[in-house]
Write a protein that binds this DNA or RNA. Structure first.
Lengths: 198, 198
DNA sequence: CAAAAGATAGTGACTAAGTACTATCTTTTG
DNA sequence: CAAAAGATAGTACTTAGTCACTATCTTTTG
């Protein structure tokens, strides 16, 4: 069997992919460098040629995730802020459904004590997400599309919370296909909550 | 130094308490039997006199949690189902605020692969919680207190999701005191979402 | 009722199985 | 052929779980 050498960048990308794939079927905290290596048909020691420590692998994973998620929710474009919010919602749910390992990774990172680089990236991601939500909600309010007394910070937390709840539900039942269908039903309730005129 | 022997039941209860306390300041997955023992001023080996395995400790913790949480949300009593829902919401948030180790524990257990006894208990807890929510929402609908076309399953998921989101937010900022204040703001949006007449 | 006997809780040193990470040698590749 | 990627075989350390023994508590019995 002939061995295939990848460039350092390729191997880094493959590593991130491997971690995300593994996280879909095992607790992120329990993923070992040996498992990551074996997933890529590479020995465990080879990882340390590209990452100085395991923690750096998590940082790379968080970085990839943040970029992917923000890119997806930034792709929405409409002159109606409510349509944009719905598109963000759908894009986010879609991202999670197609990458079931991501939510456990985020939670695992969130639980970590102290401020690791990976956790800092996660906080930055959430902050930027929040800005986007607030902006669109404010525009919707100005346009008279939602109730004029809408509590925007609370509405932003709620937006993310709904997705959270969905993810949790699907992890509990092990059924992630219900997410897409349920997401529109949840979003309808959300629209009612912020007094959207339909 | 005189040694204090506890009965097996007392020691089990103390262990559960220790685990919950430790989970407030460190990742549940990283809690070792040595840490648990040291928290109670007992050696690590002593734990295995009362629990056959570490997994059984987690099961005991889940059992305690499920009983506590259900007891608290069952205490609410009113002739107005919406008031009951709000009281459940407040009771749940209060439980989480006073036991900050619980959410990480639940999420850690949820991530575990396969069906451990602890995970089964968690699923049972959620199922029972869901029943209570559906019952109250149905009563509210019959009484005309909320919109007659309310999507009850979605509303039940949403109820839990909001709490999820709150918890996540507080874990991110490390500020859990904002939870109580924010919870009423979120609940107001929720009421709007299910078309509550105010 | 006090002392012996038995039961139970806790100790401390150990083990076996991992873990992240490293030093050195080998293969691939431009 | 030289530089980069991977293999091999480690190191040093951590972890859940074990076990023979000891301290403490409870029950029996002369």
């Amino acid at each position: 069997m002939k061995r295939k050498n990848l460039t350092s960048d390729e191997r880094k990308a493959a590593t991130v992919e491997a971690v995300i794939a593994l996280a879909a079927s095992s607790n992120p905290a329990d993923i070992t460098t040996a498992q990551i290596g074996s997933y890529m048909d590479v020995t465990q020691g080879a990882l340390f040629r590209h990452f100085p420590s395991k923690q750096e692998i998590w940082t790379a994973v968080m970085d990839w995730t943040a970029n992917q998620l923000l890119a997806r929710i930034d792709k929405v474009e409409s002159d109606n802020p409510l349509d944009e919010l719905e598109a963000m919602f759908v894009a986010h749910v879609d991202f999670v459904v197609t990458h079931p390992g991501i939510p456990p990774i985020l939670f695992g990172e969130l639980q970590r004590r102290g401020k690791t680089p990976a956790k800092a990236l996660l906080q930055k991601l959430m902050a930027e997400y929040g800005v986007r939500l607030s902006t669109k909600l404010t525009r919707a309010k100005s346009a008279g599309l939602i109730a004029c007394d809408t509590d925007i910070p609370a509405a932003a937390i709620m937006f993310l919370g709904i997705i959270q709840g969905l993810v949790m539900q699907s992890m509990m039942t092990g059924n992630s296909s219900m997410m897409r269908e349920m997401s529109t039903r949840l979003f309808n309730i959300y629209l009612g909550g912020i007094g959207a005129k339909m």
